[in-house]
Design a binder for these strands. Structure first.
Lengths: 237, 237
DNA sequence: TTAATAGTGTCTTTTAGACACTATGGG
DNA sequence: CCCATAGTGTCTAAAAGACACTATTAA
């Protein structure tokens, strides 16, 4: 049989296949806390429980899995987050009551203000303190997904400046350090933190300053691709 | 409607869903080269091309995606590799001619001798030099998957001793260093390499020695969980 | 001037790089 | 004894930790 003939006769639906979803762990930083976006489920299964934003691949619209997660997050927040990274794919017979299922999970970061107004208008979507969310009973295995995203973000905070994507486009170094400290869970040496960022030339000084009751701090913006940079040495663990 | 009623009425096959597969990039080290396990496809689609070992989730047998990849690799090699790690999930409308598809890919490592005899008996399964495989036209997007696995392994070689799983259970430090050098693609400082492994106490001295034309080298085995250990500082990049 | 926060100088510590040295076995 | 390979000593270099110091603003 030729390949053409094979493909003509091939019917995907003939084979039983796990249920496939895409979920996102969207973090932000606001008022000293790391927060995660949760949705209160209005449909079965797991109706009424809080869950990570997620959904199905739309074979018509989506050209990639990243398209899917971006589409889902835009639905919930009205904006596209500046940082998205695939986290892990979870699969098993029991994680969803509908049967053997697989979810491709993503970690994303966004500035709180970028989607605040939109989220405030919707009742079943909300930012929740990560510490609190981790203790809650979330839908499906979303607690496990959140935990893994949290751990990965903690690692990234030790060897990259990816956490900067949880801040607005311009930010000060003390602000960025605070985000890292919240994620890592312990204070960092100011000098070490600043030295490595300066040496790697990851930020652009906007020339502006912002005052918070003391000496005004310089406002920076990320240089292109700075999220990809990894320091060769971790901060103290 | 109650959740029970919802679940009774739910039919997975009613919704179009991407084709789901699991693929493995199984590396080994043999005679100075990094090798990857490839299969010559005997069925459509992509019949006749070389591909990574892969297959479908078996909803009856598999309790997790890792079960799936282990089952697939056991079919091809007769043994279960000592190191398996999820790599990345690829998805899109064009990567498989049968339609929108998703593959969850894994990286695995095994000693060459552990499955040599079995592989030699099968005609369409073979170890191939990674450098050569990367230049070949593989089935589906397997070239891209291989490339990504190769990159991840290179990174791991800089901050872990994961490459040790490509060697037999006992090995010498010069052997391990050679594996790292092949993966990284450049020579390493003997002293630096040994010092960090000793300091982190990752290996157990078996007391045995092995001679290769000069002073005999001590034989080590990995300590439990040594594959999870990450050095805080990378080797030179 | 003081309080508060931003930012720097500089010494110490840690860990990798470089490379020469010693050690151990086989012919 | 010589060759080959294994393994060590030790100085240098790079980058983080510690912490005190200076700088800049508002009240």
């Amino acid at each position: 049989m030729s390949e053409e003939k094979y493909l003509q006769n091939y019917k995907k639906t003939l084979f039983e296949s796990p249920l496939l979803t895409v979920d996102a762990v969207l973090f932000t930083y606001h008022q000293g806390d790391l927060k995660v976006l949760l949705i209160e489920r209005s449909n079965h299964p797991e109706k009424g429980k809080w869950a990570l934003p997620g959904g199905f691949v739309d074979e018509k619209k989506d050209r990639s899995l990243e398209d899917t997660v971006i589409r889902i997050l835009k639905q919930k927040t009205s904006v596209e987050p500046p940082y998205i990274e695939q986290l892990y794919t979870f699969g098993g017979p029991d994680r969803d009551k509908r049967g053997w299922s697989v979810t491709i999970s993503y970690t994303a970061l966004i500035a709180h203000q970028a989607c605040r107004s939109h989220i405030e208008t919707v009742s079943n979507v909300d930012w929740m303190n990560v510490a609190r969310a981790e203790k809650m009973e979330l839908a499906f295995d979303h607690q496990q997904i959140l935990y893994r995203a949290r751990e990965r973000l903690r690692q990234k905070a030790l060897y990259s400046i990816v956490p900067a994507y949880a801040l607005p486009e311009t930010f000060t170094l003390p602000e960025l350090q605070r985000v890292h400290e919240v994620i890592i869970g312990k204070p960092l040496q100011k000098k070490s933190f600043r030295r490595r960022i300066e040496q790697a030339n990851l930020l652009i000084d906007t020339g502006e300053k912002r005052s918070e009751g003391g000496r005004p701090a310089a406002l920076y913006r990320m240089r292109e691709k700075s999220g990809d940079y990894t320091f060769v040495r971790n901060l103290e663990q």
